[in-house]
């Protein structure tokens, strides 16, 4: 009888223990500590990255013109200083988006490299918060077999230059993603002097421990290599923001400087997707 009582006691104790000790405590505490350690810097930079393409089931998986007004509303509502967008159809679509943005932003799309979609970068040149960049410079960043779009701008003349790269890595080949990430990182290293460089976009690699799907594959290894290489020079600013795409995938990233900036906010705007979009925008706010 005493053995049964003992087993029952341990059973109840375990159940109570499982309910009392909740999972995920460490990450929450780390996040709280991070926010407590934030310095009160004067200058705030708000970045947004968003793959505005549509899910695979759509006949047109690139951005839809009819979604652009909603995209513009999200950008304006969040008062982003710079925006990285992926999967636009081309310059005409960018022009349409800039109109929806009430011409508060300057924009640029990268070379399509023979593909059917392009990446864009938008810089706020006039706005309500007062901080708006004057005459940003745009360029293409060759990476792997494609291009990324880059913009260099100053929030204010006395502040360091900020560089934002909008990138979209191959969705189907992990080895191509690896080559792409390497080129992007090397490009930013070779261009980096005193500016604050951010690489934002849809990298399509899943390295989160939340999805335990495989024991070991070459694809997982390639993505691991890509991510590790980026983290040699950058910090994953959206690490704790959660999934950015359907099916619980965290595949959109904003990589920022390891030092000189303080992360103030990292949030996935999950109510923002319109139409058949399969990604949500990732909003990052840093102080420097």
């Amino acid at each position: 009888m005493w053995l049964k009582l003992l087993l029952s006691f341990f059973f109840v104790l375990s159940l109570v223990g499982a309910f009392v000790v909740g999972p995920g405590g460490e990450r929450e505490r780390a996040r709280e500590a991070n926010s407590a350690n934030q310095t009160q810097n004067d200058h705030v930079l708000r970045l947004l990255t968003w793959n505005i393409g549509n899910g695979d089931l759509e006949s047109e998986t690139r951005a839809h013109d009819e979604d652009l007004s909603a995209v513009a509303t999200i950008i304006l509502d969040n008062d982003a200083d710079a925006v990285a967008l992926q999967e636009l159809t081309g310059k005409d679509q960018l022009r349409l988006l800039l109109q929806h943005l009430e011409n508060c932003y300057s924009g640029y799309v990268c070379n399509s490299a023979g593909g059917d979609r392009v990446e864009a970068v938008l810089i706020k040149t006039s706005g309500h918060r007062g901080s708006a960049a004057a005459s940003p410079t745009f360029s293409d960043v060759p990476a792997g077999n494609r291009f990324a779009a880059a913009a260099a701008f100053h929030l204010r003349k006395d502040l360091p230059e900020v560089v934002l790269v909008s990138a979209h890595a191959d969705a189907f080949s992990a080895s191509r993603r690896r080559a792409f990430a390497a080129d992007l990182t090397d490009w930013s290293r070779s261009h980096s002097r005193n500016e604050l460089t951010f690489i934002a976009g849809d990298f399509n690699f899943e390295v989160s421990t939340r999805n335990k799907n495989n024991l070991f594959t070459d694809d997982a290894k390639h993505d691991s290599e890509s991510y590790a290489y980026l983290l040699n020079s950058f910090r994953d600013l959206g690490l704790d923001a959660g999934e950015t795409s359907i099916n619980d995938r965290r595949i959109d990233y904003v990589f920022g400087p390891v030092a000189n900036v303080t992360l103030r906010r990292a949030e996935v705007l999950r109510s923002a997707a319109v139409g058949r979009m399969d990604h949500w925008p990732l909003l990052i706010e840093v102080a420097f």
């Binding site: 049964k4 029952s8 375990s14 223990g17 000790v21 999972p23």
Partner: peptide
């Protein structure tokens, strides 16, 4: 960094399985 809270939670859950099934 060992996530002790996670570890405690899942170890307790496994404990519930073990003792429940054994009982």
């Amino acid at each position: 960094e060992v996530p002790w809270a996670d570890l405690g939670h899942y170890a307790a859950t496994c404990g519930a399985y073990i003792f429940g099934l054994l009982l």
